[in-house]
């Protein structure tokens, strides 16, 4: 059984966000080894883990749907520039509308429906009470620009990458729950440029190999990889834009509160070729799980401890864990029989 959307919880102020037992079970735990290694770790984005798993559908709609959509509205209301699309990305934006509407309506017929008669489309989102008719490809027929319109109805951040000159350019996106990167600043950058601040990987040639692989991804063959960091409090919007408001929370972690205050933040990143524009859609679906919920799974607790203990220092700094990494490792060590 799939977890149904529940009532709205908050990712700020009073942080009422919580995971049900089912949501903990299906959490996409990222560590497969006891030792952390940076790798590109891409695999075909095919169903895995059985019915109801986080990898069961192209897009995962879970119990936090309404909460995340409400959070997104708050972010966009205050900072509309967290969504942008350069002029030449218009067709790619419509590609994304089509890909998302088709897959959502096929995978979740109880929540979403799409009726198409030629270019005349009707889209219904029962969870958000949306019911609109529009002309596919005609941006003036939607109440919002196409990326903005569909982005507000699906969990996770989205970027659209224009492919030209053997490279990928970050030319459109909606980014309201990033792990510390700014779409407004990175807009228009090449693949290497926007990964500029990532330590170690450039010298190891990881990005060159990844780029070569990505530009050859064909239509209908999406790939995924996981990325992770730690977030203090269940804050979705850990953007640089708001860092001056949330940065101080990194000093609030103590041995007493670490279990409830620190969250493993996992991104399921999917790259999917857009058929009409040849652009790449890069979706970043974020999951948050508190350490005290995480350690209810004994295997995860042990792996998490060993992975964090062996995490290289440049990555500890890059991920912003410097101030509380030790506290987290100490907390997790009690669950590891070998430590």
């Amino acid at each position: 059984m799939r977890v149904a959307p529940k009532e709205i919880q908050s990712f700020r102020d009073d942080f009422t966000y919580s995971n049900s037992t089912k949501a903990i079970e299906r959490f996409p735990f990222p560590f497969v080894d006891d030792e952390y290694r940076y790798s590109v770790n891409m695999e075909p984005h095919l169903p895995k883990g059985g019915e109801g798993s986080a990898y069961d559908k192209f897009l995962d709609i879970d119990e936090h749907y309404l909460s995340e959509m409400a959070e997104r509205e708050l972010v966009l209301k205050e900072m509309p520039h967290r969504c942008l699309a350069m002029e030449h990305m218009d067709l790619a934006c419509w590609d994304m509308v089509e890909r998302l509407m088709v897959s959502l309506s096929e995978d979740y017929p109880d929540y979403f429906s799409l009726t198409r008669e030629g270019d005349l489309w009707r889209w219904e989102n029962k969870l958000l009470n949306i019911n609109d008719q529009f002309t596919f490809g005609d941006s003036s027929s939607l109440p919002l620009p196409p990326l903005d319109y569909i982005g507000r109805q699906v969990q996770g951040d989205f970027a659209l990458l224009d492919q030209r000159d053997g490279d990928l350019f970050l030319d459109a996106g909606m980014v309201t729950c990033p792990a510390d990167w700014s779409l407004a600043f990175d807009a228009g950058m090449s693949f290497r440029e926007w990964h500029g601040p990532v330590p170690m990987a450039h010298s190891e040639g990881i990005f060159d190999r990844a780029l070569k692989y990505l530009i050859a991804i064909p239509v209908g063959k999406p790939v995924r990889r996981l990325n992770w960091t730690l977030t203090v409090n269940a804050r979705m919007d850990t953007s640089p834009e708001k860092y001056h408001e949330w940065g101080h929370e990194r000093t609030s972690v103590t041995p007493d509160n670490v279990g409830e205050k620190v969250y493993l933040r996992v991104e399921v990143q999917v790259l999917d070729r857009m058929p009409r524009s040849n652009a790449m859609m890069f979706s970043i679906r974020t999951y948050l799980l508190s350490l005290e919920d995480l350690v209810t799974n004994k295997t995860w607790a042990v792996r998490m401890h060993r992975a964090l203990k062996t995490l290289p220092e440049p990555l500890i700094n890059y991920k912003g864990l410097t101030r509380f990494h030790g506290t987290v490792v100490d907390y997790l060590s009690q669950f590891d029989p070998v430590s």
Binding site: E98, V219, G220, M274, P275, R276, S277, N278
Partner: peptide, 8 residues
């Protein structure tokens, strides 16, 4: 059939 991009 799937839609495609010019030049495919």
């Amino acid at each position: 059939l799937t839609p495609f991009s010019p030049g495919a």
